[in-house]
Amino acid sequence: MRLVVQGRAISLSHLTHIHRIIGGHAQFIQVGEFAYYLPIQQQDTAEVARFCAEQLLDYAVVPDQQRLNQFGLCVMDMDSTLISIECIDEIADMMGIKPQIAEITEAAMRGELDFAASLKKRVALLKGLPESALHRVIEERLQLNPGAQAWITACKAHRISTMVVSGGFTFFANHVKQLLGLDYAVSNTLEIVDGKLTGNILGDIVDAQRKADELVKLRDQLGLKPEQTIAIGDGANDLKMMAAAAIGIAYHAKPVVQQQAKYALNHTGLDGVINLLSA
């Protein structure tokens, strides 16, 4: 096993303290600009976990066999995972109703509301908005999260197929797919008639179960084993997808997601995944 510790606040004194907690003769090895790992034997790292939380560092105990060259598929959420915004909240801002919709979005991501029902409710409030507002969100608001491009570049280098599966919308998911060079994209389609949103969604909604199903479907199409899959997300509607993968990674996620994920990144970018799996 290896103990991976990372974060922009990391210092030599942090590593020295952690080494004192763990003991042994092995030394920390640097695997990234702000990331180190330590070969360990013991399972009990609760004291290290408490220390890292206090010092705003990410830590994980990773089995030796979990390395980038062992994986073949990574499935990722889009809003607040690959990109820094919740697209529907920014669309709502164009109508002056962002607070109302953002409140529903936040509750859904915490797992307090049924995702499909909450999405329909939010989209219905967007009725009459011109399609041009969607373009404005891309031009003015949409940004990749730190480390997103580095993570996808690492996936390509290790022949890991990539897919964004989003409870958001194809208008944005297809843009992100092209922007990052992803292999696949699955998301919801907003109905647009005469250049305006109707307040409806076309087809089946991409909810938590659909996300998991899409991962399994693509995994099987690619001829991969379950242990060759990674899922990354931040909201409650990502939990089933993360459970279907060999490893689920919570990225700056809601508490309910961090509690159930295999690994959690709170203080690093998505390039932190590279450090977890390439040590």
Score class of each variant (00 low, 15 high):
83 I>H: 04
247 I>H: 05
131 E>I: 09
238 D>S: 03
155 C>T: 09
181 G>S: 08
25 H>V: 14
170 T>Q: 13
154 A>V: 13
247 I>C: 10
79 D>F: 04
159 R>N: 15
177 K>L: 11
261 A>C: 14
240 K>A: 13
90 E>G: 05
124 A>R: 10
157 A>H: 10
257 V>C: 06
172 F>P: 06
213 D>M: 05
204 D>P: 04
39 P>G: 13
162 T>K: 01
125 L>Y: 07
279 A>W: 09
260 Q>T: 15
106 E>C: 12
211 K>W: 05
260 Q>F: 06
39 P>A: 12
215 L>G: 00
123 V>M: 09
241 M>N: 06
1 M>N: 01
177 K>C: 11
194 D>C: 13
177 K>R: 14
11 S>M: 12
267 H>W: 14
190 L>Q: 07
116 A>I: 02
137 V>K: 04
202 L>D: 12
254 K>W: 09
145 N>C: 15
68 L>T: 07
38 L>A: 01
136 R>E: 09
138 I>N: 01
238 D>P: 08
148 A>F: 10
200 N>V: 12
62 V>G: 03
256 V>I: 15
210 R>A: 07
127 K>I: 11
190 L>V: 04
34 F>I: 12
279 A>L: 09
36 Y>D: 06
119 L>R: 07
148 A>P: 09
15 L>P: 12
99 P>L: 08
160 I>L: 03
72 G>C: 06
48 V>W: 03
266 N>G: 08
3 L>N: 00
52 C>N: 04
275 N>L: 08
242 M>F: 06
100 Q>Y: 14
266 N>D: 10
262 K>E: 09
220 D>A: 09
211 K>Y: 07
56 L>C: 14
185 A>W: 04
8 R>K: 15
115 F>E: 00
150 A>M: 08
232 I>S: 01
117 A>H: 07
220 D>S: 14
65 Q>H: 13
22 I>H: 08
74 C>S: 13
247 I>W: 02
187 S>E: 06
36 Y>W: 15
139 E>N: 15
69 N>Y: 12
228 Q>M: 06
272 G>N: 07
214 E>P: 03
183 D>I: 04
123 V>D: 05
9 A>D: 15
183 D>F: 10
18 I>P: 07
207 D>S: 02
